[in-house]
Write a protein that binds this DNA or RNA. Sequence first.
DNA 1: TTTTGAGTTGTTCGA
DNA 2: GTCGAACAACTCAAA
Length: 486
Amino acid sequence: MPSDPSANAPCIVWFRQDFRLEDNPALSAAVKRGGPVIPIFIWSPEDEGRWRMGAASRWWLHYSLESLSKSLTALGAHLVIRDGSVASGLKELVEATGAEAVFWNRRWEPAAQKQEEAVQAMLKKQGVEGRAFNAALLFEPGEVLNGSGGPYKVFTPFYRACLAKGLPSRTQPAPEAIEGSRLKGLKLEDLELLPKIHWAGEIAKAWTPGEAGAQKQLDWFAHGPVADYMEERNRPDHEGVSRMSPHLHFGEIGPRQIVHRLRGDVAQGYLREVVWREFAHHMLHFYPETTDEPLHPEFVHFPWEKDVKGRHAWQKGLTGYPMVDAGMRQLWTTGWMHNRVRMIVASFLVKDLLIPWQSGAKWFWDTLVDADLANNTMGWQWTAGCGADAAPYFRIFNPVSQGEKFDPDGAYVREWVPELAKLPKEWIHKPWEAPAAVLETAGVSLGETYPKPIVDHKFARGRALQALARAKGSPHPDDPQPQLDL
DNA sequence: TTTTGAGTTGTTCGA
DNA sequence: GTCGAACAACTCAAA
């Protein structure tokens, strides 16, 4: 037998947002290296700064860790759980175990990158090997650049450049066995990730966190909805989308596995959305301040309203616009909202109520089980018109026509706004226009059983167009006219 | 260097 | 009911 002593020194695998065994390059490399493997998760919200994990995501994290822990145990390893700052936690572990290497998969959020730099510096000081791998993305920031060597700021050319490179689909199998090491840590319960008040019942019914749940979800999507994705993806009243977002966010499955599973023309439209996720991560990397600041600086002066009542009505799903309220209640109840409806509610907050997009981003951050800093930031900036590929200023969603177009029978509204369930579909998206007799028959009393619209959309649209014109510096009737020097 | 064409997801109005 | 045009100007990407 070879007797190189260093071959048997333990290797720590630091799990972050890559809670899977298949196609997990850090884990595979550690196993291949030989010697004991110490998988570790360190709960360190203080390392995340302003964007520490929200309540719904913490719920998911709890069960994702539970699932990962079981899978590792089945292979012979043991997930060590800790809390506190990652750099100091890893330092202690390296010293306690005599580990000679720490492997992990990269994350791209600004705070996560700072955390990683601190870990690298610590390891260098300790004389321990630190190696980072790519598990999260098809292409990491810097791999897809425009002709001038800079980052793309428009999606379509970025997308074409990705396709030209070929979407990576090679994956690594899960290890068959792992040489473990007994090491004491915290119990999962000690992290107190689950809510103290019991509000997660419906979330639990809707989702199965963990690698097996992710695989099952992808199977379901690949066998059915993917074929009609382009038509059905806009229908919140149908099961037409993949619902992969929380699994992807927590790395219970990686994008390469998705590309591998969905090869073929039928999935092109869906894979385009996966590339949007890539684009969002690249943008966040190159423009890290966009989590809080508009990408386009003229929006710093945008005349936002401080409308506390409006914000609360929006959060609770009591705006009086059924499509908006249905979405907000689906979010609150299940930790997720259909993407089409995300655009509708976001447009309503930002354009109809003129409430800052950051406020909406924060609410989503706390309530979504798939809250992802890159995707969330890109989505909200796009809606507000201040981000990459920004919406033209005149693109203001009409919550009524969007409802009639994408929830034509009102089934989605009926599910999430049950007090309107008996309204005929003719009026379900605009109950304030329904004849009194129709309302009475349906048991709807506006202002009592369901709110009247908190703002008139036509008025709000005009107001938003005016505010946008002013922010952009175009002339406005109320502004002093510049003297023309003719 | 200059020029040209394109740019996720919309709405409204008038023919 | 359906259809096309108008709704700004600007930035980005690439020829």
